[in-house]
């Protein structure tokens, strides 16, 4: 499946695409291409507390500071809301394996919504392609290919498995973090404090789902594409040297909205809702459908369920 010739073509394609992105980014201005000391040393950010130890006032100061910082960087106003969790809500996600066509619309929507770096490219969702014949024995992730490049999806005889953060109830990544910069919120969302992370990448070694991504270089988002509705624990633009991941679109779901990938899915394969509400879509599918979680044997208890619709 991993064809070296195609790999080369893909690499070349990736390179030219990045070149293009770089040129556009350079036109956008200050945010582009400047690696070192792109942001001046910020005393307040440096001595900022762990988000979990902050008082309400300190969180207000944080949101103000982030709004000022990003407005300066991207030249447009930002709406920063540190919305808290909703009572009696624990989020769960369902994904219909029999529907997914591997079109990567969710990846695209996620990148846009969550201000992922365009160059170097970071994508929180990875869509793996499997040969249907092999999947009858279960998904062996080693057989998956995220680099498929077809004219049309789904390709004949292929099935697709999108993977992002599984928001485990017993999350290995939060256990290993040396600074307590990542934790599970009361509504079940595993979040990262992007000002507190030191970038040791222990969580990346611990995550069984490859959900965590590191900012190897200064991330770049063209100013005209940046999403200005941000949450400090979610889609705020990140800095170099920190780990980032899916937050179930915390900035949307805590206001009752669906995550961006859910909205983008053209086949309705994605389901989202409150696990504690017996009438929610997610509760219905857990009761009535054949579901499975990835790597159940690891006892991470993901809140991301795959099912056959």
């Amino acid at each position: 499946m991993k064809n070296p010739e195609r790999d080369e073509q893909l690499d070349a394609k990736g390179a030219s695409r990045r070149k293009f992105l770089r040129t556009t980014a350079a036109g956008v201005g200050a945010a582009a291409g400047v690696p070192a000391a792109a942001e001046a040393f910020d005393f307040e950010t440096f001595f900022q507390k762990n988000f979990r130890s902050m008082s309400d006032e300190e969180i207000d100061e944080l949101t103000d500071r982030l709004a000022r910082k990003y407005e300066k960087k991207y030249g447009k106003p930002f709406d920063v809301q540190a919305t808290g969790p909703v009572d009696n809500v624990v989020f769960g996600y369902g994904l219909d394996i029999s529907r997914c066509i591997g079109c990567r619309r969710c990846v695209d929507a996620c990148v846009q919504e969550n201000n992922q770096s365009r160059d170097p490219e970071i994508q929180w969702i990875r869509v793996l392609e499997f040969e249907r014949e092999r999947v009858v024995r279960g998904f062996e992730l080693e057989d998956g290919n995220p680099y498929y490049d077809h004219e049309q999806a789904p390709a004949e005889g292929m099935v697709y498995l999108p993977i992002a953060c599984q928001h485990c109830e017993d999350s290995p990544c939060t256990n290993v973090c040396p600074t307590g910069a990542t934790w599970e919120e009361p509504d079940g969302i595993v979040v990262i404090d992007y000002d507190w992370c030191i970038g040791c990448r222990y969580c990346m070694a611990a995550c069984p789902y490859g959900a965590r991504h590191f900012n190897w270089a200064e991330p770049n988002i063209p100013a005209d594409e940046v999403n200005t509705n941000i949450h400090p624990l979610g889609n705020r633009p990140r800095g170099r040297g920190v780990v980032e991941k899916c937050s179930f679109c915390i900035q949307r779901v805590r206001d009752g909205r669906y995550p961006a990938c859910h909205e983008a899915c053209p086949v309705g394969a994605r389901k989202f809702g409150n696990l504690l509400d017996p009438n929610s879509e997610i509760s219905y599918l857990l009761k009535n459908k054949r579901t499975f979680v990835l790597k159940a044997e690891l006892n991470t208890r993901p809140k991301f369920f795959y099912f056959y619709g």
Binding site: D11, I101, R104, V107, D108, E121, R126, P146, Y147, P154
Partner: peptide, 10 residues
């Protein structure tokens, strides 16, 4: 079938 978005960069 529809045209998928480009694959991720390696």
């Amino acid at each position: 079938p529809i045209e998928p978005k480009p694959p991720p960069v390696r």
